[in-house]
Amino acid sequence: MEITIRNNQRLIRINQRRIESILKKVLKHLTLNHRRYSFIESAEISVLFVNDRKMRELNLQYRGKDKTTDVLSFPQIEQFKQFKRFELLTSLGDIVINLPQAKRQAKEHGLTLYNEIAWLLIHGALHLLGYDHEKNKYQARKMREMEKELLGVLE
């Protein structure tokens, strides 16, 4: 499992090793406890941290929403679904996190910045794996249950 992290914003400093550790724990749990995700061990994932302006641009470009958001995911899994052979997958995709938004949300939720980032990483990673809380209530419930399970791994 290869994780690439880039911090393209200058307002907030982060410990990239800590971010990588969080994501590795979550992904390792998925590979060990959910057989259908065993392919993750050989896949790569990238994480990009941006500011409000850049996230707003991305949200407008890819989702048609002219506002900032906390996390966006760009999965590569769609092209492999037709083969039903995820072991061929080399990249899960990209997670983009708006660090200033994460900091604001952490304060609102009474969390540390790294707790909020952990939730956003989990949320983004699940989107990369095909979870979609916007599809319907059932899918939203499935995603929330998996988020809780993965957050528990970090406690």
Rank of each mutant, 00 (worst) to 15 (best):
T112Y: 06
N51T: 03
L88I: 06
L60N: 03
R104Y: 09
Q16F: 10
R18Q: 14
Y37D: 03
F86W: 09
M1D: 02
L72T: 01
R10F: 09
R85D: 13
V71H: 01
R18L: 15
H29F: 10
V50T: 10
L58S: 01
I45C: 13
E155T: 14
K67C: 02
P75V: 02
E145K: 12
E149A: 06
R56H: 05
N115W: 04
P75M: 02
K137R: 15
R53D: 13
R18D: 12
I40A: 01
L128Y: 09
S73T: 01
L60G: 03
K137L: 15
W119C: 03
Y138V: 15
K148P: 14
M55Q: 04
A102K: 00
H127E: 13
F80S: 10
S73C: 02
R144I: 11
N7F: 03
R35D: 09
D70T: 09
I95Y: 01
I45Y: 01
D132C: 08
Y114W: 10
K54E: 13
R10W: 10
L120I: 08
F49K: 00
R13Y: 10
M146G: 06
L154Y: 07
R141D: 14
K81Q: 07
A106E: 04
K65V: 14
F74A: 04
A102F: 01
R18P: 13
N59Y: 06
L30Q: 01
I45L: 14
L11W: 03
D94K: 11
A102M: 02
H123F: 11
L89A: 07
Q82W: 07
Y62I: 02
L121W: 00
R53F: 05
Y114V: 11
P100G: 02
S73K: 00
I40L: 05
F80D: 05
S42E: 15
K84D: 12
L23Q: 11
D66C: 00
I5N: 09
V71R: 04
I12E: 02
I117N: 00
E78T: 11
Y114Q: 07
R141S: 15
T90F: 05
G110Y: 10
K65W: 10
H34I: 06
A102I: 01
I117T: 01
R36H: 13
K25G: 08
K67S: 07
R56C: 05
L48F: 08
K103N: 09
R10I: 14
P100K: 00
K84N: 13
F80H: 15
I122E: 01
P100F: 00
S46W: 04
Q82T: 08
Y138T: 14
G124E: 04
Y37T: 04
K148T: 15
W119M: 06
G93V: 02
T90Q: 11
L88W: 11
A140P: 12
L126M: 14
G124Y: 03
E20V: 04
F39I: 11
H123R: 04
L126P: 09
L121N: 00
L11Y: 05
S21W: 08
L60A: 05
F80M: 07
I77P: 00
K54S: 04
G110I: 04
L99R: 00
N7V: 12
E147H: 08
F39Q: 09
A140E: 14
S38N: 12
L151V: 14
F86C: 05
N8T: 13
L128G: 07
T112G: 09
K103E: 13
Y114D: 12
V71I: 09
A106Q: 06
N98C: 07
S91Q: 11
N59Q: 06
N59C: 12
M146K: 14
I14F: 09
E147Y: 05
S91V: 02
